[in-house]
Structures are given as structure tokens and as C-alpha cells.
Design a protein around this nucleic acid. Structure first.
Length: 506
RNA sequence: GAGCCGCUAGCUCAGUCGGUCAGAGCACCGGCCUUUUAAGCCGGGAGUCCUGGGUUCGAAUCCCAGGCGGCUCACCA
């Protein structure tokens, strides 16, 4: 009767006890292995009859009385093991004390089964780590139409809460997390090959700036002061231009106190880069080079698939003027110049006009640039599938950017849109301390008026500018989003190893 | 923050109109099985039906409140 009420874990604990009684340490120190399993499987013919020692986790077992097959997975791949009483003698019965999920090492000669599977005929095996809990058992069936996954570990909550299980048993989860890591590694290599030096800047900042966002706040006990988690690296990296570095960048986390959705995540990884004597065009070339290199390495091609659609990332990317495109779209509303038209006419579009459904987006903080931003999001962004370089932003939306020489209402800036999402933001950096001060003051006024995302006036940064900052191009790229795109992930959390969830109270 | 949907065995799920509805497959345990691969065959065990209230003779099922998650929207680059 006690047999019947044992949990799976109890059964494994009993096996553990029996192993110890047999003098077997269920958690021994590591033993050497001779090969990663993928190396053997990739060249099975060459390994025929060769003695190997492999180590990994048991992920499947198919017992046949006095002979049994098992699958062993290591970081490189999967190989089949063949446990046979003829070869193992008395030790064959120890196979019964192994469970799915256990780590083992196995030594024996490689052979090929009747069905063509490269297999290790185990002559000796050692338990490396006993698993006390049963992992999800996911089985893959090979069919003519492709692999069919059975009993997939699919519940989103369980997957995110127990991400180590998700990555353990779901190959796509592993692939996506790896894509994120590969991207960061490649980006650093790419930047350094282009002469950039990575310098870390503070995450804990007395003032936050460089982007319009609500910050997280924290407190330093010894300094007895409030600090903000950075929303951008920008103002510190530009101080490094003042200091005399010509090409600086940083890949690190920014923190914005906003909600999570498909393409937003409150702690996200940003690449920021600044190049002295460059401008936003310099940064466009860098962006094109980096993203196509990343596509090549992660997706294997400049032509990728995203959300079931073909997406060609090949350069050069088409450019599109934000204000000109908007003027074309809004002509049917009687507005053919969003920058010069009467503000009342623009406002009327939202106030009971044809775009009344967008009214909540401008209500409470009306301004012409804000309206232009909202119009662009609603009328143009949904069309931007292929990489598109959007230029001609209103200067008021770009407080850290230089203005265009022949049209001061516009900023020297581009944003890169792919598949309806923003991936990069770059401008010719404002280095005029007077103009920069005015822009900060405008932001401070917006903040005082209740805009929680307004930037703060940073006197120290302005003082730095007064020592002279060379003209420069600056760039930010959202790396999680880029990983999501290149890994064809449906959600930004898929490329983040441990996404945040509410604590579950029992 | 709002709307919609979901939560049943370790995993994936079914559960009709409130009444043998506590179920299946995988996993597990016992038996058979020495080239299988979603191995197979026979037998068996396994539950806080998310939580708490309520309605009812009777609730996994209906109602209310709450929790957690997903999607959409809002917020947000």
C-alpha cells in the first residue's frame, strides 16, 4: 500500500538510497570524457569500433529485457547508448537504478545499429548526478512530413517559471536564448573590428537621461541618496567623447519602468555607439553592416523568415522621409504640410475628425511634434516590413540631436524600422551647449507639466559640452529585439533567459 | 490599468446538460522482451480539479471574490 502512495520523487530517493548502499556515490566528482557526442555522430563511419567515453543526460530509454537503448544528450547533441547484459555482466542491473534526467558517463565502442543509428555499445558506465525530479518527457516522432513533437512542454507559465526545464527539453527555447548570446558576442566583435572601444558607464545614476522614459529608482544607503537605474547610456558615453575617445560603445542593460509586451521589456539590452567626426549617416553604415552580419551568422542569410513571412535584410535599405510621407498620407484629410499647417487643423483630425480613435494618444499632452509622432505610428509604421530608414524627424522629438542645416525644424536623425518595429535610433549628436540647454529646459518644462518620461536637466553634462564635444554620430540598437527578429521568436521574452514573472503565493 | 481566454496526475490534455467524471497518452511501478528509436505487449499505482466563499440533495462543471498566466488594447521606442 505504501508502494502505491509514493511520489515519483520518493521512488527516485529510494533508488538513490540503494545506490549508496551499493557503495556508489550518486554525486561524484567529474570523470574525463573523450568526445562531445556531436563529433561522433557527425562522422560515425570514422568512429566505427573506436572506444569512446561520453557524458551527458539520459533523455530516453527503450528497454528490451537484457538489452536496452538510451539517449544521451550533452551540450553538443544526442547519441544513442546500448546497454547489453553480454557486455556489462552484473553491472547491467544497475541500469535499472538510472532514471531519465540523470547525468551519466558511458564508455564503449561505437557501432551502427541495423536501423543506421550511431550508437555506443556501453562497456562501463558511471552515474554522474542523480536526478530526483522527473523532467518533462518530450518525444519527437520522425515522419515523412517532418518532426512531430509529442507532449511538448508548452504551458507558457511553466516554461517561463522553470526556464531551465524549458531550455532542457525544448530545442527552440535553447536556440533562441543562444541566438541572443551569439548576437551580443558578434556585436562586440564587430564593433571592435571597426575600431570601437567598449567602456562601461554607470547603471546607478543620480540623474537619468538620454531617453524619454520612466525610470526605476533605488537608494544607496551609505551615500544616503536616491539613485536611478539608467534609461540610456547616452550622456555618459558622450562625456567620453569630450574626454577624447573617438569611437566608444557599450552593450548593456537599460531599465525603463514600463509594462511588458511582445516587443518591450523593462530591463533590456542596448548597444549604444558614438563616433567622433561622424554623423547619423556614419551610424547608418555601421547599423547596416552590423545587422546584416548578425543575420548572416544567426539566421544564415540576409533573407530570413519572421512570423511566417519572408524578410529581406539586404542593404542598402530604402529610406523614407517621415514628414514627406506623412504629408502624402494626410493630404486626404486636407493637410499637406504637417509642419506648416495651422495647428488647429491638425488638432481637428483627432478632435472628432477622421482620426478620432487616436485622440487618447494625444490627449493631455498635445503638441505638434507629438501629433506627428502619433500619426506616423498609425499611418505609416504598419506598412514598414522590409528594413526602412526613416529620416526627417521633427527636431522637438529629438532633444539630443542636431538640427538639419537647411531645415531647422527637422533633426539629423534616422530610425530603423523592420517588420513594424523600431530597431535603431541614431542622430548627429547635439554638441552646442546653448542649443542643448534650451532643449533640456523644454524637457524640464514638460516634466513639470506632468510628463513622467521627460528628460532631466543635466548640468554636469552641459558643463562637459562647454569643454567641447567633437561633432559625432550616435546610435542605439535594441539587441533583444534584434535577437527576436533573427531567431524568429514570437515574443521578446523568448530570447531572454529568465523573463520576469509575478511571484506566485501558495 | 481594461477586455477576452486559460488553470484537472510529474508532462500534454479530455471531461457533454450539475448526477460512476476523477479520465486518457507519455512518464512511473511490476511482469515479458538481446539492434530499438513516440520500441512493443500484459498488469498496476498516481489528484488541494488554482484558492476562498456561495447556490444545490449533489459542484471540476453554475455564481461571487481573489491568485497566477497568455493574447489584445492602453502605457511604452
Amino acid at each position: 500500500m505504501t508502494e502505491e502512495t509514493k511520489s515519483l520523487r520518493d521512488i527516485r530517493l529510494e533508488k538513490l538510497k540503494r545506490l549508496r548502499e551499493l557503495g556508489i556515490d550518486p554525486y561524484p566528482v567529474a570523470t574525463p570524457r573523450s568526445h562531445a557526442v556531436a563529433a561522433i555522430v557527425a562522422d560515425g563511419a570514422a568512429f566505427e569500433g573506436v572506444e569512446v567515453t561520453v557524458a551527458g543526460r539520459l533523455t530516453a530509454q527503450r528497454t528490451h529485457g537484457k538489452a536496452s537503448f538510451a539517449d544521451l544528450v550533452d551540450g553538443s547533441g544526442k547519441i544513442q547508448l546500448y546497454f547489453k547484459a553480454d557486455l556489462l555482466g552484473d553491472r547491467y542491473k544497475l541500469f535499472d537504478l538510472l532514471d531519465l534526467g540523470d547525468f551519466v558517463s558511458a564508455a564503449g565502442k561505437v557501432f551502427t545499429t541495423r536501423t543506421g543509428e550511431i550508437t555506443v555499445a556501453v562497456e562501463d558506465f558511471t552515474l554522474l548526478a542523480k536526478g530526483l525530479r522527473t523532467p518533462p518527457i518530450v518525444k519527437t516522432e520522425k515522419t515523412a512530413e517532418g518532426d512531430v513533437v509529442h507532449d511538448e512542454f508548452a504551458d507558457p507559465e511553466k516554461r517561463y517559471r522553470k526556464r531551465y526545464l524549458d531550455i532542457m527539453v525544448n530545442e527552440p527555447a535553447r536556440r533562441r536564448v543562444l541566438a541572443h548570446a551569439t548576437l551580443l558576442s558578434l556585436a562586440r566583435r564587430y564593433m571592435e573590428e571597426n575600431g570601437y572601444v567598449e567602456i562601461e558607464t554607470p547603471i546607478l545614476q543620480p540623474l537619468y537621461g538620454g531617453a524619454n522614459a520612466r525610470p526605476f529608482t533605488t537608494y544607496h544607503a551609505d551615500l544616503e541618496m536616491d539613485l536611478y537605474l539608467r534609461v540610456a547610456d547616452e550622456l555618459y558615453l558622450k562625456r567620453l567623447l569630450v574626454a577624447g575617445f573617438e569611437k566608444v560603445y557599450e552593450i548593456g542593460k537599460d531599465f525603463r519602468n514600463e509594462s511588458i509586451d511582445r516587443i518591450h521589456y523593462p530591463e533590456f539590452t542596448m548597444l549604444e555607439a558614438y563616433e567622433a567626426f561622424g554623423d547619423y549617416r556614419t551610424m547608418l553604415a555601421l547599423t547596416q553592416g552590423l545587422i546584416t552580419a548578425a543575420a548572416q551568422e544567426i539566421a544564415g542569410s540576409h533573407k530570413i523568415t519572421f512570423e511566417g513571412r519572408e524578410l529581406d535584410l539586404s542593404t542598402p535599405w530604402p529610406e523614407l522621409s517621415m514628414v514627406e510621407t506623412l504629408n502624402e498620407r494626410s493630404a486626404k484629410f486636407g493637410i499637406d504640410d504637417v509642419l506648416a499647417c495651422a495647428e488647429e487643423d491638425l488638432r481637428a483630425l483627432f478632435e472628432g475628425g477622421p482620426l478620432v480613435e487616436l485622440k487618447p494618444k494625444v490627449e493631455g499632452r498635445w503638441s505638434r511634434p507629438r501629433a506627428i509622432d502619433v500619426l506616423f505610428d498609425a499611418l505609416v509604421v504598419p506598412e514598414l516590413w522590409r528594413p526602412t530608414v526613416v529620416v526627417d524627424f521633427p527636431a522637438e522629438l529629438s532633444p539630443l540631436a542636431k538640427r538639419q542645416k537647411d531645415n531647422p525644424a527637422l533633426a539629423e536623425r534616422f530610425e530603423l524600422f523592420i517588420a513594424h518595429m523600431e530597431f535603431a535610433n541614431a542622430f548627429s549628436e547635439q554638441n552646442d551647449p546653448f542649443v542643448q540647454r534650451e532643449a533640456f529646459e523644454a524637457q524640464a518644462r514638460a516634466g513639470a507639466a506632468g510628463d513622467e518620461e521627460a528628460q532631466q536637466l543635466d548640468e554636469d553634462f552641459l558643463e562637459a559640452l562647454e569643454y567641447g564635444m567633437p561633432p559625432a554620430g550616435g546610435l542605439g540598437i535594441g539587441m533583444d529585439r534584434l535577437a527576436m527578429l533573427l531567431a524568429d521568436a514570437p515574443n521578446i521574452r523568448e530570447v531572454i533567459a529568465f523573463p520576469q514573472l509575478r511571484t506566485k503565493q501558495p
